[in-house]
Design a binder for these strands. Structure first.
Ligand SMILES: NC(=O)c1ccc[n+]([C@@H]2O[C@H](COP(=O)([O-])OP(=O)(O)OC[C@H]3O[C@@H](n4cnc5c(N)ncnc54)[C@H](O)[C@@H]3O)[C@@H](O)[C@H]2O)c1
Ligand SMILES: NC(=O)c1ccc[n+]([C@@H]2O[C@H](COP(=O)([O-])OP(=O)(O)OC[C@H]3O[C@@H](n4cnc5c(N)ncnc54)[C@H](O)[C@@H]3O)[C@@H](O)[C@H]2O)c1
Lengths: 211, 211
DNA sequence: CGAAATTTGTGAATATTATCACAAGGAATT
DNA sequence: AATTCCTTGTGATAATATTCACAAATTTCG
């Protein structure tokens, strides 16, 4: 049923290749080899080729890859060629940083709804949108047909807001709260494990007797 | 030279176990089994046991793990039992969110220096610290003996600020800029690949014809 | 045009990670 | 104290992921 088994890591790297291709393209180069890409991404050239071949044959032996063609192909493969409306739950410190992040817009992710439960915040405008009460999130998401949600509430509220988003029709969640969300099958959750990363850093530095 | 090869993933999961143990401890339980931990972390019980055994034998057959003992052990293994001074480069949207994040303090990460290059920001106070000009970052870090840095500048500035931090004696970097930093061997970089995560979400949703 | 130089795509070989499955250890129960 | 019931730690096995290495394709250059 699944189109071949493509490693999750390969998908994540696709995003990295796209970013690097953009840089190369802007620098005026028209072709690039797998070893050049690998060098810039800190990977093995064979891995770059394997990753790309999961999605099609983009290269020309003796020459490499057409930068703009490959960039466009990856953009399309990842579904980034059209705008994606997004709902944001939790307009706190992190939520507001995400709201004003240009990089999301550049990639086509448009935040179209914002939810919070703080009466101080509900009703206020942010980035041209009115912050709504999280109680109404399901129906608003349903109305706006939004499929992607970002959770940046405290972890205590994350599961309940996830349920509401899903009830409203959200199919994919980017979760910043340090908690494993329980979701029905078919719903995709991607966690941004920020604290874990910092703690990993602490581990490696401690091990080397640096801290 | 390296003490056994412990998978990076195991280290990251250690951090997850610690978080879950805290929840279980606060709920008043004194012991926990690998299957309970696995259930809550969305993992396989054997994996939980394997992960823990990399670091020591903490369990009692027939009973499981002593919650508080294991929590303390992990905290120590990860070097989180003492305060860790941190330098933050880039006091923009994200940087300011990180600054006011209680979770970092709770985990012992104390931001003691902030650098920016925006004359509007330099000199202003944030969380009780004066934002310094990034030009002076090396010497200030050297003076304060800070070993951990967080980079939340635009990616165009990330490499140069990384160089300065390292020059000042920083050994570990948590990097939010979407770029692969080049660093001397011995310096540890952990990337928070936020855009990649969102793009992955887009990919999986597109593949399922949801977007 | 033909030879040399590149560089892809890929099967095979490694290496790494995750899961299974069970003997052995210890707790709880009678 | 014997029995039953759990649950660990771990060797064996399976699944994944990465790297090697090379034939085939194509460009470049003489
Ligand atoms: N800020 C960071 O740098 C950072 C770093 C790592 C992880 N995180 C995680 O991200 C999440 C957000 O962090 P933050 O610093 O922005 O916290 P915050 O407290 O500043 O913001 C949380 C926001 O969520 C709102 N909220 C609470 N309950 C809600 C509900 N039921 N529905 C909708 N909104 C609700 C609050 O009113 C607040 O505006 C937390 O889970 C935190 O652990 C944050
Ligand atoms: N904000 C987000 O939600 C988000 C999400 C994903 C990734 N990121 C990444 O995080 C980084 C920061 O994002 P942001 O939204 O906070 O950007 P921002 O523009 O709001 O902030 C960047 C800050 O860095 C400062 N700066 C610039 N050059 C500097 C230098 N050489 N030394 C010190 N400081 C310098 C700027 O003055 C500014 O204050 C970027 O690389 C961005 O791609 C941000």
């Amino acid at each position: 049923m699944e189109s071949y088994k493509i490693p999750k890591r390969s998908v994540e790297r696709l995003s990295i290749y796209k970013r690097i291709l953009k840089v190369i393209m802007d620098a005026g180069f028209t072709t690039v080899s797998s070893s050049e890409l690998a060098e810039r991404a800190g990977l093995n050239p064979a891995q770059v080729r394997k990753d790309l071949v999961y999605f099609g044959q983009f290269g020309t032996p003796g020459m490499g890859y057409q930068v703009s063609t490959l960039h466009r192909a990856i953009t399309r493969i990842m579904g980034l060629h059209k705008k994606i409306p997004v709902a944001l739950a939790g307009a706190g410190n992190l939520g507001q940083a995400l709201l004003s992040y240009q990089g999301f817009k550049d990639r086509g992710f448009i935040i179209e709804s914002i939810f919070d439960n703080d009466p101080e915040k509900v009703g206020k405008m942010k980035n041209g949108i009115k912050i709504r009460n999280e109680k109404n999130s399901s129906s608003e998401i349903k109305d706006k047909k939004i499929k992607v949600g970002i959770i940046s509430t405290p972890s205590s509220a994350a599961q309940s807001i996830a349920n509401k988003l899903i009830e409203g029709g959200i199919k994919g969640i980017l979760n910043f709260a340090p908690i494993e969300l329980k979701v029905p099958s078919g719903i995709i959750v991607v966690n941004v494990a920020l604290c874990e990363k910092l703690e990993m850093l602490s581990y490696y530095l401690s091990k080397r007797k640096i801290l």
